[in-house]
């Protein structure tokens, strides 16, 4: 049964991506302490990323809007259910927990699991099939591969935001970005910014993971502008997460800048990996 295999893949992928946060104490506390509307907001951001990701992947495979919505609901739903079962198994929620605590835990932990579920259905299955069809690919390329290279700048930046959110979410709830950000001198922070930009530029455009081709149509298609745009988005994602987890409350502008830049390193790497992962399929052909 193909469908059953798909769902098992989604649950497995979701659990794989979600496990680090299931084992993070700060997330359990945030689940209880964060106001409900902030958790809703984070869920909404996650939904935008999941829908956007499914849309970008789905439209390659000629999916209708309805199918994209169904896939997204399923990914978020699988995230919710897997989170609930995992939290029960880990003893983070039990019969004594209040409804508010259970919902808070499940909602927060479901976000990375939903990302993992979407990724594994679209990406892991594709990657797995690619291995098997290495020979076929040389002969005739499949539709999904030929269209992947046509991701517009806006779509690539959406993917960048998704990757940034996925990576930074694993780090943002912990205390470490606060320590690093507050402890860093301005020179160090400038160094971290330079490092983020150079590493992501090199990863996406020169490391040739899948031999990226250089398409120069608009300004945002060129390596340096795309890298800078993706970095700005990564910083925005970092700030949003820090704000959501209450890290910026009462902090000075200097401290907030430090936190955003330090978490931005993680976010920008996620943005780079996201762009590589989603955009690599077709570009390999032309590389």
């Amino acid at each position: 049964m193909d469908e059953a295999r798909d769902y098992i893949r989604a649950m497995g992928g979701g659990l794989l991506i979600g496990l680090p946060l299931l084992f993070t104490q700060e997330v359990w506390q945030h689940a209880v302490l964060l106001p409900a509307w902030k958790i809703l907001l984070l869920l909404g951001l996650a939904a935008i990323v999941v829908i956007g990701y499914n849309a970008i992947n789905g439209f390659r495979a000629d999916a209708t809007i309805g199918e994209v919505v169904v896939d997204s609901v399923e990914a978020m739903g699988i995230g919710t259910i897997v989170a609930f079962v995992a939290l029960l198994a880990l003893g983070r929620i039990d019969g004594g927990s209040s409804v508010r605590d259970i919902v808070g835990h499940v909602a927060l932990e479901s976000i990375p699991i939903a990302f993992g579920a979407s990724l594994s259905r679209a990406q892991l299955s594709g990657a797995g099939d690619d291995e098997g069809r290495e020979e076929d690919r040389r002969g005739g390329q499949t539709k999904s591969e030929s269209e992947a290279g046509r991701l517009g700048p806006f779509q690539r930046l959406l993917v960048a935001a998704g990757g940034a959110l996925l990576f930074a979410l694993n780090v943002a709830p912990t205390e470490e970005p606060v320590f690093i950000g507050v402890g860093a001198s301005p020179v160090m922070l400038l160094g971290v910014m330079a490092l983020s930009l150079v590493v992501t530029l090199a990863l996406v455009f020169f490391a040739e993971f899948g031999g990226r081709r250089h398409v120069s149509q608009g300004i945002l298609d060129r390596p340096i502008p795309e890298t800078i745009a993706a970095y700005v988005i990564s910083l925005l994602v970092a700030w949003t997460l820090l704000w959501s987890f209450g890290r910026v409350d009462g902090a000075s502008v200097v401290a907030i800048t430090g936190m955003v830049v330090s978490l931005g390193l993680v976010a920008s790497l996620g943005a780079a990996v996201g762009r590589l992962l989603v955009a690599s399929g077709g570009e390999r052909e032309d590389g």
């Binding site: 469908e3 059953a4 509307w37 809703l40 869920l43 609901v73 739903g77 919710t80 919902v103 479901s110």
Partner: peptide, 26 residues
């Protein structure tokens, strides 16, 4: 098929439950 309908229905219900309760709580 039936499996897909079940997964979709359960997913939609679980999501609606979480979002609804959080909204109420807000």
């Amino acid at each position: 098929n039936i499996l897909e309908w079940v997964v979709l229905a359960v997913s939609a219900l679980a999501l609606a439950g979480v979002v609804g309760l959080l909204a109420l709580e807000s």
